[in-house]
């Protein structure tokens, strides 16, 4: 058996940037966010409205070129309230949710906020699947998914 008295731990980290240039479908979707619009595109083969917009339809493997401006209102497909702090991840409590734009065939991950609470536990009662949400736009928008700060209940 090993003599673990000699064992020694090495601590280090990786920190490396990756740069990419996104093509037209990503550009138009993100540019839409800069102008406070949530754009989707419609697959010519299955007619599915994809929000966020996609370069191609995963189901049909065809390019998507028809664009559609959504109302910006989304409904909660599912959500989870995080109560614990993880290294490198946002501070609790915070709600991340799967939301779906009106008549879209795809849903997307985003942050849900603006729900008042005294005890974090209340967030699990007040947030409901099926709830309608509207986007809360950032002041300074640069064409990024976080140009939407979070989604908040429509009647908030």
């Amino acid at each position: 058996m090993q003599d673990i008295s000699y064992n020694k731990r090495f601590e280090y980290n990786w920190d490396v940037p990756f740069k990419v240039t996104l093509g037209e479908s990503y550009f138009r979707f993100l540019d839409g966010l800069k102008n406070k619009k949530i754009l989707g595109n419609i697959c010519p083969k299955c007619n599915g409205l994809h929000v966020p917009a996609r370069p191609f339809c995963d189901k049909c493997l065809v390019e998507i070129t028809k664009w559609y401006e959504t109302s910006g209102i989304v409904t909660i497909e599912s959500f989870s309230v995080t109560y614990v702090k993880f290294l490198g991840l946002p501070d609790p409590p915070h709600i991340t949710g799967i939301v779906r734009a009106e008549n879209a065939v795809t849903s997307f991950l985003h942050q849900i906020g603006g729900i008042p609470y005294d005890e974090p536990k209340e967030l699990d009662e007040k947030t409901k699947i099926g709830m309608k949400l509207k986007p809360v736009w950032a002041e300074k928008r640069i064409g990024d998914i976080q140009d939407i700060l979070y989604f908040t209940p429509v009647d908030a």
């Binding site: 996104l22 991840l89 915070h94 997307f108 991950l109 985003h110 942050q111 990024d144 998914i145 976080q146």
Partner: peptide, 8 residues
């Protein structure tokens, strides 16, 4: 770029 920023 699309999902990572939300820390899931």
């Amino acid at each position: 770029l699309i999902e990572k920023p939300f820390g899931a």
